[in-house]
Write a protein that binds this DNA or RNA. Structure first.
Lengths: 335, 335
DNA sequence: TTGTATGCGTTATCAA
DNA sequence: TTGATAACGCATACAA
């Protein structure tokens, strides 16, 4: 394994010059640059990221504190960040956040102590805590918010247009001829859930359809809760019961589908079902689930970029990157 | 951020002594050890893993090349390794293996070049390639095999007793009074699948029940294939059709359950169903799925240990660590 | 049992 | 435009 010294010797220059070429400094003559480049190629040299980290004091690690990793959302996110870090030559250092212990602040503090990490990704629900933002700022840690509920001052956020996605999905159901469309909401604390509900309501309104409060059930992003919600909905008399259900995530859609098939109702003929997240669950459902795909890979890649070019100043205008989602219409909602 | 020097000064000893305490060497007097420990606590000192990596030349990264990350098995494994690495102060560096490109050797080679990694975890199907073993050995890379199909020479393996687990699960079904028990196998190339089938057959035999070849279907660990397999099984005349189905993974069990409920057969009353892996899918099924839990966390932690204490010699007696699995009996197979 | 001095592969300071 | 040398934080050969 060759070092910067080997390259310097081979090229007949000093190590500093090689370093300059490596980090493409401006003040290097074309001639020496070529010489150095040639030497590097011949020696098949690649710099040691460890030594670089050591010297720079910075760490190539990206921190991530996550909640329940068995949820489709978090699992997709973790996977995407694992990939994005690899592609960026960085390392993902992830620790489970104990959501039941509400003292997030000290949990994050301990995490930072242990890892000495200077780049962090904040996912829901952590991303909505201004206390945490402040802590990170104090410690000089760069951080990016994934799907925060609002635009926070001096923060970089990466989001999708939740409301628009919900409108699309609801419109799709309307276009299929449905007029009685129910909605299972997510967690009330979660603004994504609120935005999706708002989109659902707007789409109905735009189509001149009534918004029935008994068609909106609080599912809490939870499979079990969704079971009973769906049970209630589908137990209504046939001519008043919903013919379509839009669920705020795929877990709840799976529940809805299970209840429907238990009750002898066929999907999509008698009940159309749509989810949100396009998580792995859609692979183990039959019929396949209509859902909105979050662009996890793009979100993670964008997060890496934003961390690399993080604003130097503590106070800056909020940066919000809205990434494109994608509606996948599948058999669960289409004849 | 305090360094080893600060600790040394505060404790009134040399850095070397602090280093000794850190890596718990034997030849340190109780007295000085305490002094040093106290100083470390007071300064809230924690060693820089970067400097340590630099000095040792070794990398704290653990490499993992995985297949489809949306499978319950791989996803559970990835998650477990992410945690285990964190706990061991290591980093998980994971890259997707392109399984369709059968030239695994050069894929692994490129991965090693890029990352300079010296510790690798090999999961199915990669763990069964002796070519890959040889490549790693040549490069001086430590590696651990997860659930390999056999005991390879000079290799460290971490496994569960697949056959025993399958026997347990089948016996459980027999104890529930079932005599017509079907089995959906996994991938024929996969020895885990074979061992599970063998366990299934042994349990039947031990109970004096016949092994019917038309009750054994090749499901390939695949949801879609399992749909049609189950369809065939449950379309048999009522008095000859299976009353229980043991599936070689949870994805297939999900399929079986879906088909059953579509056909109007209740689970577990008319068909009992059991899976394998106890993956996240069991959370989105109703009734909840009986399954065998692979001890992912323990496997990952054990792998870290084995990498840390890897045999110095190129040739050593195979090490096989059999970890305990756990059968979770849930509603899908029990009245 | 404990301490001193050196080097790991980079980048940065300062001088040339 | 270039180069000699120090420094990052740790572990170890060698010395005491």
């Amino acid at each position: 394994m060759s070092t910067i010294h080997d390259v310097a010797e081979k090229a007949g220059v000093s190590v500093k010059t090689v370093s300059r070429v490596l980090n493409d400094y401006s003040h290097v003559s074309k001639n020496t640059r070529d010489k150095v480049q040639k030497a590097m190629d011949e020696l098949d040299y690649s710099p040691s990221s460890i030594a670089r980290q050591m010297r720079l004091g910075d760490t190539l690690s990206v921190g991530l504190m996550y909640g329940d990793p068995t949820s489709g959302y978090q699992s997709g996110l973790n996977q995407a960040f694992l990939e994005a870090c690899f592609n960026a030559g960085r390392y993902l250092v992830a620790e489970l956040l104990d959501e039941s212990d509400r003292d997030w602040l000290s949990q994050v503090g301990r995490f930072l102590d242990k890892t000495k990490i200077k780049n962090v990704v904040l996912v829901p629900p952590l991303c909505d805590s201004e206390e945490v933002h402040e802590l990170l700022r104090q410690r000089g840690v760069n951080f990016v918010l994934i799907s925060p509920s609002q635009t926070f001052p001096s923060c970089v956020s990466i989001v999708i247009d939740e409301q628009k996605a919900a409108i699309q999905i609801t419109k799709h159901l309307i276009n299929q001829g449905h007029t009685r469309i129910a909605h299972l909401t997510g967690d009330v604390m979660h603004v994504a859930s609120l935005l999706r509900q708002r989109g659902y309501e707007k789409a109905l309104k735009d189509a001149g359809l009534p918004i029935r409060s008994n068609f909106i059930k609080e599912g809490g992003f939870d499979y079990k809760k969704a079971l009973s919600c769906t049970q209630e909905l589908l137990s209504l008399p046939e001519n008043t019961r919903p013919t379509a259900i839009f669920c705020s995530n795929d877990e709840m859609a799976a529940a809805a589908m299970m209840v429907a098939s238990k009750m002898g109702l066929s999907v999509p003929e008698q009940v159309a079902i749509a989810g949100f997240d396009d998580s792995f669950i859609s692979k183990v459902l039959w019929p396949q689930l209509t859902s909105v795909a979050q662009p996890f890979s793009k979100m993670a890649a964008e997060a890496m970029q934003q961390l690399n070019n993080f604003p130097k100043s503590q106070n800056f205008d909020p940066i919000v990157r809205v990434l494109p989602h994608k509606l996948y219409v599948r058999e669960s909602s289409q004849l």
